[in-house]
Design a protein around this nucleic acid. Structure first.
Length: 598
RNA sequence: GGGGUUGUAGCUCAAUUGGUUAGAGUCCCGGACUGUCGAUCCGGUGGUUGCGGGUUCGAUUCCCGUCAACCUCGCCA
């Protein structure tokens, strides 16, 4: 046994005990005659003291210690003398009077010190991730992640869910994200696909009668990355039989309540707020609205139809929308140049042609360079619609509905962050429901499922399956997203278990039953053999951890993450392989390598 | 695939309008100090300014290309 105590647990109550601790040298301070070593492990830091007068040989040894050496130290726990207690350390009441030091391993000088106040560049941190993970902040987040995962598993276990593992090597399916492929050696020319999610397997488990399934499942998507997206990520995957949408929402809402209680120590009331997709798009311009602050989108298309201002009027008359937000009490915070900056940003980011803005003067009148194009009545009507007060800043976007959504959602989020309109510690959950079932894909000239082809329509919308394009686009799905602080934390659907409806949906998606069978054969078959009504949900575990940890980057809640180019700076993956390996797989790269020029 | 930001010592950063020997803190090495806790003090090692071109008498600085990290649009549920 290398230790009897960790570096985080000694307190005044332990004074007088002889203990052994082990860990890394966090700092070593030589005062000639007395020498302090802070020893660090996962649990904390403990100060140890070496006295030259007490043991000269021991003192010679401790003087050789350097940062990040691994040591084992035995000694007596002493109360720190009066005035020398360190209130910044949890173990600051005591110190260890060392009588024995074993250097378990020396460390080369590390690229950076875990205890350093400056955080190295992310590139350096990822390259030496094992050093980075020694930092207390990383340990905090990974510990939080464990607690969240454990709470999830406990909760579902208590509710009769079974955790079942599903395959990593599966079959590629056409819909959804790009697959990661794994070549088969035994069947040359054939490929496995890594799962984008265990979607199909969990439905099979329902058909198999495992009516409450849960899995902490690794998922893979070969798409471009973001701050909140990794090529491999973890879902908390849930599926239940004999349930309706309300049952799934209920059990997940209670899970959220439990997580908030156990992780944050906060009681939150149920039911969680609920908003429809249409309302979310209308009021916030996004299907994952951030409800921590207002600044809601207001529609002034009707007023725009009556004004001389061509930009507004032509859009309004040709079926577009004119919408705006009211940035309360911010007119004096934004110069003309600032607003030009916002305009340029919306152009670059969302393709907006421009932003029309007004400032509200002390009399409550809309002013600004565009104001001269509007009648006093129109300005007043706009002001009334946006509930203006003096010093408000109004920003308008016009164009097709989706463009105004993107532009105003972007502005709303950016400005709220900039103006600190919300408490960064707040955890704001809501459900978004009644999503559209299909959308028309202009490029492929066909209907595409918003979720996946097995999602059930709302019962009241079933007749529209036989209608024209207008009705089809109005069909809503039994789909629900859990939204947290403007992020989609999870989403799910009730699945179709009626083969007639399933065939209609396949038909709408331009698939014959035969084609569907080819792509999802096993599931289409299985649905014929007594599929119970079922549905479920998947929670993006990494994102949930990120939001609970109060950080803005998914990489920091994953032990060994990948860069935005999906490479691992520590291992060097992905990397070329030996020709022999490719030959076994009957694979030949078509990449043309440039010869290095002399 | 597009747009943007960044790249200088192991690490974190600085360097005037393009100017002469590229600095500081920290780490590391040596020394001093008996109560520090981001110890302090003295001395020292350490540089392909990401890489490749170009402009210039002269480039860390300006231009072009390229690589990498990050942010983002497209993409992705």
């Amino acid at each position: 046994m290398y230790r009897t105590k960790t570096c985080g647990e000694l307190r005044a109550a332990n004074v007088g005990e002889i203990v052994t601790i082990a860990g890394w040298v966090d700092s070593a301070r030589d005062h000639s005659g007395v020498f302090f070593v802070n020893v660090r492990d996962r649990y904390g830091k403990t100060q140890t003291v070496f006295d030259a007068a007490a043991d000269a040989a021991l003192f010679e040894l401790v003087k050789t210690l350097r940062n990040e050496d691994v040591v084992q130290i035995t000694g007596e726990v002493l109360a720190r003398p009066e005035g020398l207690v360190n209130p910044n350390m949890s173990t600051g009441e005591i110190e260890l009077k060392a009588t024995k030091l074993v250097v378990l391993n020396r460390s080369e000088p590390v690229p950076f010190l875990p205890s350093a106040p400056e955080i190295p560049s992310e590139e350096t941190r990822l390259k030496y991730r094992y050093i980075d993970l020694r930092r207390p902040e990383m340990q905090r987040v990974l510990t939080l992640r464990h607690r969240i995962t454990k709470t999830l598993r406990d909760y579902f276990d208590e509710n009769d869910f079974l955790e079942v593992e599903t395959p990593i090597l599966g079959k590629s399916t056409p819909e959804g994200a790009r697959d990661y492929l794994v070549p088969s050696r035994v069947t040359q020319g054939a490929f496995y696909a890594l799962p984008q999610s265990p979607q199909l397997y969990k439905q099979l488990l329902m058909i198999a009668g495992y009516d409450r399934y849960v899995q902490v499942a690794r998922c893979f998507r070969d798409e471009d990355l973001r701050a909140d997206r990794q090529p491999e990520f973890t879902q908390l995957d849930v599926e239940m039989s004999f349930v309706e949408m309300e049952d799934v929402i209920d059990i997940v809402s209670k899970l959220v309540q439990r997580l908030m209680k156990e992780v944050k120590g906060v009681d939150i009331p149920l039911p969680l707020p609920r908003i429809t997709y249409d309302e979310a798009m209308e009021r916030f311009g996004h299907d994952a609205p951030d409800l921590r602050f207002g600044m809601e989108l207001k529609d002034v298309t009707d007023i725009a139809k009556t004004v001389d201002f061509k930009v507004f009027r032509s859009v309004a008359e040709s079926g577009g929308r004119v919408r705006g937000i009211n940035v309360k009490n911010a007119a004096d915070k934004f110069s003309r140049k600032d607003i030009d900056g916002l305009t340029a940003w919306t152009g670059e980011q969302f393709g907006a042609k421009g932003i029309v803005w007004f400032k509200v003067d002390a009399q409550g009148v809309l002013t600004g360079s565009s104001a001269k194009n509007f009648s006093a009545e129109a300005l007043e009507a706009i002001g009334k619609k946006l509930e203006v007060e003096p010093n408000d800043l109004l920003l308008f976007s016009c164009g097709d509905f989706n463009l105004t959504c993107r532009v105003l959602n972007g502005l709303r989020r950016r400005l709220a962050a900039q103006l600190k309109l919300y408490d960064p510690d707040e955890m704001n959950f809501c459900w978004v429901v009644k999503f559209p079932m299909f959308h028309w894909d202009e490029e492929e000239n066909r209907w595409v499922a918003e979720h996946h082809p097995f999602t059930a329509p709302l019962v009241e919308d079933l007749p529209k399956l036989d209608g024209g394009p207008e009705e089809i686009s109005a069909i809503r799905a039994q789909a629900y997203d859990l939204v947290l602080n403007g992020f989609e934390a999870g989403g799910g659907t009730i699945r179709i278990h009626d083969p007639n409806i399933q065939n209609k949906v396949f038909g709408l998606l331009g698939m014959t039953r035969e084609q569907a069978k080819e792509q999802f054969g096993f599931l289409v078959d299985a649905l014929q053999f007594g599929a119970p009504p079922h549905g479920g949900l998947a929670l993006g575990l990494d994102r949930v951890v990120m939001l609970f940890a109060g950080i803005d980057n998914i990489r920091d809640c994953i032990a060994f993450p990948k860069t935005t180019k999906a490479s691992d700076l520590m291992t060097g993956a992905p990397a070329e392989v030996e020709k022999k390996q490719l030959d076994e797989l009957a694979i030949k790269s078509t990449v043309v390598k440039e010869e290095p020029k002399p």
